[in-house]
Amino acid sequence: MTKVNQITLDKDKLLKQIESLVAIAKKDKWSLDYDTDTDEMTFGKKTMPRDTFLFNVNDELNLFLSPDSTINGIFIEYFAVNFIEHNKELEPVLQILEEETPTETPKMVAHAKKALEQELLADAFKSLFNRDNFVTAV
């Protein structure tokens, strides 16, 4: 029988982390990885901690969380065929992540990656801010 622990996440703690996620990502050396095989995008710790679980935030975003509400990363399924389709301005980022030869300069590449990070953070913050239910189970 699967043992289930119901937990209530700390909304304030989550929102505070999202507000300072750029600093957290830099401190914890988050990496931006795209898996062309599964069309999944991960922006987060290179190795997720053992107690990490996925928490769905909205139609596109999931957070990698620990039970103490620490954010370990962001996870998007169907990144190219769905997320980028809704965020066409981020297409250069997809090309970079797919390791195709970019026509952009390195400065534009860094700018494109930063644009993706900002889009993800804004999306995550808005969705969490408007959410009422923070009960989950692991």
């Binding site: 898996d35 095989d37 599964t38 999944e40 679980f53 996925l54 928490f55 769905n56 139609d59 999931n62 399924e77 169907y78 769905n82 989950t136």
Partner: peptide, 15 residues
């Protein structure tokens, strides 16, 4: 198998 994980929703249902 391409990947496997625990999840709390069915993403494909959204499409």
């Amino acid at each position: 198998i391409k990947t496997s994980f625990k999840t709390d929703h069915v993403q494909e249902q959204k499409y």
